[in-house]
Design a binder for these strands. Sequence first.
DNA 1: TTGTAAGCGTTATCAA
DNA 2: TTGATAACGCTTACAA
Lengths: 313, 313
Amino acid sequence: MTNIHDVARLSGYSVSTVSRVLNHKDYVTTETRAAVQKVIDELDYVPNDVARDLSRGKTMTIGVILPNLDHPYFVQLIQGITKAAFVADYHVILLSSRFEAEIERTYLAAFRRKAYDALIFTSHGLPLAEIATYQKYGPIVICQPPRDSGLSAAYAHRRQTYVQALTTLKVQGCQRVALLMSRPIAVSETSQATAEAYRIVYGESPRPAMLATDVITMADGQRAAERFIASGQTFEAIFANSDDIAVGVQRAYQQAKLPVPVLIGQEHQLSGELAQFPTIDHHCQIVGQQALQLAVSGEKRRIAIDSEFINNW
Amino acid sequence: MTNIHDVARLSGYSVSTVSRVLNHKDYVTTETRAAVQKVIDELDYVPNDVARDLSRGKTMTIGVILPNLDHPYFVQLIQGITKAAFVADYHVILLSSRFEAEIERTYLAAFRRKAYDALIFTSHGLPLAEIATYQKYGPIVICQPPRDSGLSAAYAHRRQTYVQALTTLKVQGCQRVALLMSRPIAVSETSQATAEAYRIVYGESPRPAMLATDVITMADGQRAAERFIASGQTFEAIFANSDDIAVGVQRAYQQAKLPVPVLIGQEHQLSGELAQFPTIDHHCQIVGQQALQLAVSGEKRRIAIDSEFINNW
DNA sequence: TTGTAAGCGTTATCAA
DNA sequence: TTGATAACGCTTACAA
């Protein structure tokens, strides 16, 4: 492994001069530069990035914690993040968490050990307060409303759009509305926004019987609907947490030969377009881009991106 | 920033002893270990990963080059790769290439600079021969048939399944079949496999007029079909390169009030299931897992995963 | 069982 | 404009 000392020795200059040549710094005569470059070319020498990182105290790497890539929300977020990272000349390192707090802790520990310059939580199982204590080791950005945690955040501002969507249901005369969620209200900001929008529009908290949680895939949506059917409840509308999931719901009713409730999806997926129900686009790519910006700049700030209700039919 | 020397000094032991405690090595008495650990805890000391990497000459990081995350193929590949990396205790660093050779070169250069322990190409714009010359800097794995490049590879074995799919079309009496591809035949192994399967089943090379390339999204599929329609050609069947794309095709014919050709999709997507056309599952997650295995182990080997034709209707 | 000291390969400060 | 040398923070022979 040839290193900077070899280049120095063979060129007759010092390592510092070689370093200056490598980093295109000033204070090197054209002749010196040429002579050093010649040796570099001859030896086919390249500097070592790890040594460079150590010396500079920076890795140009952002750790991105994400539970999985099963949901389009996370895929879009990652797309936005990598796109912005490419421009900013940062590397993105993928840290899968499966929503598990204990795994997230291992990444926080790695963050302390200087493995990444900054950390982005696309979702978090850990309490925000616990995450916030690691800010002393570098910038941390979350992709959800930061509440009073003092964390930087880029996130989709959902509630107002949820209110808008539910209002259209109410206007259509839908009184009995079921809500599907990916995670329990207690642990999910998104689920909370959904419940709160319901409260705002319908004037009361959603009753447990009209909720289904842990609905992630189309199959989950189908199962949730089957449980609704089996319970004997009838809903005039179902507010699903993705278009794919809405399709699962549609299927369940069709297979049971029952009238399909009014459906609203989310994430602006192909399936929603096909089945022609309204959807909500959370502009997750933009959220991801902003999150990366915050991570790189170290700015302590919250950026809310408005969601968009799409109702073309 | 407290370091290992501080711990050594305050504990009264040497850095090597501290290092042994940190790395849970033998040859440390219980008392010494306890004493050192006490100082570590008091100082709230953690080792620096970058320094560790430099010293060990390893980063525990695999660079994964991928053009984008727009296609489910790449998403699934990444899922498989990260899943396997998690188990193997490796980090995955995402390197977006947008299919551009010049960008890929920058990653190969970073690889030389020891930025990653190994490299996985989920797709490549560069010639395999050029990529292969970088193997002297560490393991490189590609996700396509490696031909005679001498590169390690994990990939979907597509041709036989393409033959199977096209055969069912032929058996149904479909003579005029159009083929949709994401990239031109000249640059894409997958497109080549498609064309070759056609040759095997139909006894002749596909004519240019029955091909559409650069078809990536559903909208592209729709446009491609519209061009077919405008050209006055009629096809009895269209072999699409994803289920979403097949849906785009379907749309174009429906909007033109024309009979929809027999459709076959790929990737086993939700849309295909909904529209109920046959599809091909390339088991990309498994491909990704195997690719990571190869990258980590450094084994020079090719692993072909059989694709699966799914025809439930 | 513990310690010394030489790496690992850069960058950065300061003197010349 | 160039060079010595001290960081950066850890691991690991080898010696004791």
